[in-house]
Simulated assay, not measured.
Amino acid sequence: MMGSAMPVFPAHAATPERGHSDLVLLVDDMPDNLAMLHDALDESGYTVLLATQGAAALQRAAQALPDIVLLDAMMPGMDGFEVARRLKASPATAHIPIIFMTGLTDTEHLVAALAAGGIDYVTKPIKPREVMARMGVHLGAARQARQDASQARQARNALDAFGYASITVRAVDGRIIWQTPLARALLQAHFGNPPGAADPLALAHRAPAPAEQWVPAPVQAWLRGHVLAGDAAERLDHAQAEPPQLSIGQGTRRLTLRLHRQAGDSAGGGDWLIVMREDSNAKLIESMGLAFKLTAREAEVLYWVVQGKINRDIGAILGASPATVKKHLERVFAKLGVETRTAAAAMALNRMRQLHQQFDG
C-alpha cells in the first residue's frame, strides 16, 4: 500500500488547486510506481492527480484538464493505449500531451503508443529525473501553443471590437481554417444567407464544408484570382505588395476585404488572412462601445466628440439636452480614465489608428 503522505483523489473529488504549478495526471495500476513518481513530482513543484484505472483516468482528465498525462501502457481492463485514444478523441482533452510509461521495448509496442496519441515514452524501471526532463520539453511546447492560441483569440476579438472581421484561408486548396462570428454576420448582411450546400471555395476533390464556412461568389472569384490560381503563390512571392483589396458597396455601407500573408509554407502559398471591415456610422459607434465598454448612447456621444461636435450639437443630433449629453460624457470620461473631451477623442482615434496601421499598413 502507498504511504499515508500520498494523496488519493476519489472519483468525485474537485480539481486540486494548482496555483501556478503544472498539473500532472499520473496513471498506473502499480502503487509502488505511483508512490515513487508522486513524491518526485511533488518535490519538484508539480501538482499531481492520480488514477489507477483507465476509466478513472478518463474521468479525472475530463474534470481537471491536466497539463500533461503520464500513462502506464499495460493496465488490467482498459489499457493505456485505449485511454490515450479516448483522450485524443475528445475535443476537451485532445490537446493534452501524453507520455507513455512502458516496460515493453519491442518496436511494435512503441509504435502503438505513438499511434494511440502519445507524444513520447519512457521505459520501466522508471527514472524520475528522466521523466521530468521529458515532461519539461513537452510542457514548454504545450505552454507556447496555448499562448499562441490565446494571442490569436485576443487578436480576433480586437478585430471584431473595432468592426473588423477575419477569416483564414489555406492558399493551397482554399480550405477555411477559421472565421470569426462577425465575419459570418457581415457576409450574410451583404450577400444574404448562405446556401445549405457546399462551401463555394471547396475544390472538386474536397468534401463539402459546413454552411457557416460559406464564402460568396464575388469573394471566391477575388481569392481565386489572387491566391488560389495555379501560379498565384509564385507570382505573390515576387510581388512587392499584397493583392489589391476588394470593396463592395451596399447603400451607405461598404465592405472592404484585404488579404494578408501569414506564416506558412511559401511553396504551398501559405495561409492568408482575410480582414474585412464595414464602414458605416452605426458600425463605428458599435465598435467604440465594444472597445471601451460603453452603453449605446455613451458610444454615440463619444463618436460625435471624435467628429468635433460640441455638446449642443450632439444634443441636437441625438434629440437630447446638452445637460444630458454632459452626463453621458462624464461617464465616458470615467470609463476611459480621462478628464477632457480632447483626451477622450485622442484615445478613441489612437485605438482605431493602431488597428489601421496593423492591418492596412
Rank of each mutant, 00 (worst) to 15 (best):
A5N: 07
F9Y: 15
H12D: 15
A13F: 05
E17R: 14
G19E: 10
V24H: 00
L26F: 02
D29I: 00
M30H: 15
H38F: 14
A40S: 14
G45A: 06
L50A: 11
T52A: 12
R60G: 07
R60P: 07
D72P: 07
M75F: 04
M75H: 05
P76K: 05
G80E: 02
F81E: 01
V83E: 04
V83M: 03
A92L: 14
F100A: 08
L104E: 08
T105A: 12
D106G: 02
T107W: 07
E108Y: 01
A113K: 04
A113M: 03
L114D: 05
G117H: 00
D120R: 02
V122K: 15
T123H: 12
K127Y: 06
R134F: 00
M135L: 05
G136V: 00
V137M: 06
R143Y: 03
A145V: 03
R146I: 09
Q147M: 13
N157M: 10
A158I: 12
F162N: 12
A171K: 03
A171G: 15
A171P: 06
V172N: 08
V172P: 05
I176W: 11
T180P: 12
P181Q: 07
L182R: 11
R184D: 10
L186R: 14
F191M: 06
A197N: 11
D199H: 05
A202L: 11
R206T: 04
A207L: 09
P208L: 11
A209C: 13
A209T: 14
A211Q: 06
E212N: 13
A217I: 04
A221M: 14
G225W: 01
V227K: 10
A229V: 02
A233E: 13
A233C: 09
E234G: 12
R235S: 05
A241P: 04
A241E: 11
E242A: 12
Q245F: 02
I248R: 09
Q250T: 04
Q262C: 04
I274L: 11
V275M: 04
V275Y: 03
M276H: 04
D279M: 07
A282H: 11
A282D: 15
L284C: 04
I285L: 14
L294S: 09
R297A: 13
E298W: 01
Y303D: 12
G308E: 11
R312S: 13
D313P: 00
G315P: 07
A316D: 15
S321L: 04
S321V: 01
K327E: 12
L329K: 01
L329P: 00
R331V: 09
A334R: 06
A334S: 06
G337E: 13
G337D: 09
R341T: 07
A344P: 15
A345Q: 10
A346V: 04
M347I: 02
L349F: 02
L349D: 10
R351D: 06
Q354K: 01
